[in-house]
Design a protein around this nucleic acid. Structure first.
Lengths: 339, 339
DNA sequence: TACGCTTCGGAAAGCGTTTCCCACGCTACG
DNA sequence: CGTAGCGTGGGAAACGCTTTCCGAAGCGTA
């Protein structure tokens, strides 16, 4: 098995020194005379030379890898985010190394350690923090270790780790959603809250509840459960079983809302005829659902891009949260026209 | 800015040689005496030492990175695949570096080159090949260069590049779908074919057409277009405008089917009342659509896993294609009960 | 002709690991 | 008692690149 051509091979082949070959092939500030430059380039293509990035990273002590850690790539929320991050990294000439944690904080910490070992240029951490001080502290410690030696990091989620963060305005978005739904005449709400420990979920629940309270409406009924499609399904089933006078359900994210829609449909409950449903995120992949889902739009792709910019330090730190926007669609109906 | 602790720092701190420190900290076959071992371990944690993987890769001339290239991470098809690949890689102790090509063959070749430069342990290439001999040849050449120096690669798609391939049985799956739909009494079909140059699309169209032919049914009407949601939407619009007697539409993938469903709905055409719709892939994220989509299931997660196994050479090469399964749901209705 | 500049090529010292090879002290054995 | 063999420790040469430093050559000017 022939080995890869090295820079030395190229230099020999071209009859120049290692230094010259390096200068020609990998961006240096120094000029190389036309004659030698062409000899080197020719030798390189002839030998099929490709820079060994690992060696390059070692010599330069700077890698061209960006680390990304998400909870679950098959969740369209993260898929869209990851997509944007990969794209943005590409624009900066960086490759992306992804890790998935499947919502295991332990795995998340482990993955940051792996990325630190790779000496990646920057780390982007996506996904909700959880309400677990010990875990948060350990993650923070790991990140601090990384940043302590020049590593850069950015977060998408709650600003809890002392690093630059793109924070989706969950609280405000949910509040606005509450007001919009109330504007349609709804007064009795249920919330499929997701896990109590997930801060993103908690923020949305709180924002929603406060929105209602600010209008003098009664507090919503809460149905906790997992943060995914099946969690939404199960929670909605429980809602149905509870036999309430709720006219509108807020699932704290779109994939849960999809599950809820399925459960209501399976339970013979018309949406929005009998119950209206709203989600959060406005996942592009889910826009063609019927009934089309009322939701709160998050600028996912933009958030990914901004996180990369923050991580790379190409942008001044702005604490300004990612703006949300309520999008009313068919899954919620107005009760007012009944009057 | 303090720099990262190196193995040498650890060795000094523990009062041992570099060799010993290395043996203790990074799996060596050689034993180190208990006393020294503990001193080294202690020093390592004290200094917060983490192996520099780039240096390690250089010294060992073997990296622990797996390269993955997909067309578009935000497409749930690739998201699910990528998820499985990341998981499988993790099991083998490898990290994954992803690249997205956005269906640009040029970018695909470029990304393989990047991965070769990283000297990744193996490359998994996902996504349909295209009908472009020159491009295919160039990609093949790039892959051969990589494999020529010990690189390993696997493909998910068409077996065209001379590397181990997980090939979804598009042809047979589509054929089976055709027979199933014919079994429901349909006789006049349209196919939203996607781009003519995409082999996956072409295989499905051909398989479907042959399935119909084998039953003596007339050839389907063909509506080409892009391979994505909007492509499906546009193609379905053209179908409507054509004002045909078609009772069943086959969109060559699920996301196109979603677009088609939307177009038909927007066009006031009932599904499955007036027209039945079927897709291909059985994307999990899309299973809660209404009407639920009849489709051909592909074992996506399994395919990802198998590709990793092939790429890592942990499994003998089996040419056996990935099995498909027709899943009839509500988006297609039986015409027989009309009789 | 001599001087100082500016260019440009090459030698060599890193970058942080691994690993080959040698040395040392033991035990076991003929 | 000499020696073969094993278990451990360390020195030092890789691995493939970048970059600093030096020196040589070419140029224009006085």
């Amino acid at each position: 098995m022939p080995r890869d051509a090295t820079l030395e091979d190229v230099a020999k082949h071209a009859g120049v020194s290692l230094a010259t070959a390096s200068r020609v092939l990998n961006g240096s500030t120094r000029q190389v005379g036309r004659e030698l430059r062409e000899r080197v380039e020719h030798a390189a293509t002839e030998l099929g030379y490709t820079t060994n990035r690992a060696a390059q990273a070692l010599a330069r002590s700077a890698s061209d890898i960006l680390g990304l850690v998400v909870h679950d790539l098959s969740d369209p929320y993260f898929a869209v985010l990851a997509n944007a991050v990969v794209r943005a990294a590409d624009m900066h000439g960086l490759s992306v190394m992804v890790g998935t944690t499947f919502r295991d904080p332990e795995a998340e910490i482990g993955y940051v350690a792996t990325l630190r070992a790779q000496r990646v240029r920057a780390i982007v951490l996506a996904g909700s923090r959880i309400d677990d001080a010990a875990m948060t502290e350990r993650l923070r410690a790991e990140l601090d270790r990384y940043r302590g030696t020049g590593g850069r990091a950015a977060l998408i989620g709650q600003d809890l780790l002392g690093v630059d963060t793109v924070v989706p305005d969950n609280h405000a978005g949910a509040g606005e959603l509450a007001r919009s739904l109330a504007g349609l005449g709804h007064t009795r709400f249920a919330v499929l809250t997701g896990p109590a420990t997930l801060l993103t979920a908690a923020d949305r629940v709180a924002g929603f509840a406060e929105g209602l309270a600010s209008l003098g409406l009664p507090a919503p009924l809460l149905f906790p459960g997992p943060f995914d499609r099946d969690g939404g399904y199960a929670a909605a089933q429980r809602l149905l079983a509870a036999d309430t006078d709720v006219t509108c359900v807020f699932a704290v994210n779109d994939v849960m809302a999809v599950g809820a829609l399925a459960a209501l449909r399976d339970g013979g409950c018309e949406v929005p005829g009998r119950i209206s449903v709203a989600g959060f995120d406005d996942i592009p992949t889910l826009r063609d659902l019927t009934p089309a889902l009322t939701t709160v739009r998050l600028p996912l792709a933009d958030m990914g891009r901004r996180a990369v910019a923050l991580a790379l330090g190409t942008v001044p730190i702005v604490a300004e949260p990612a703006e949300t926007e309520v999008v009313l669609r068919e899954s919620t109906r107005s009760l007012l026209e009944d009057a």
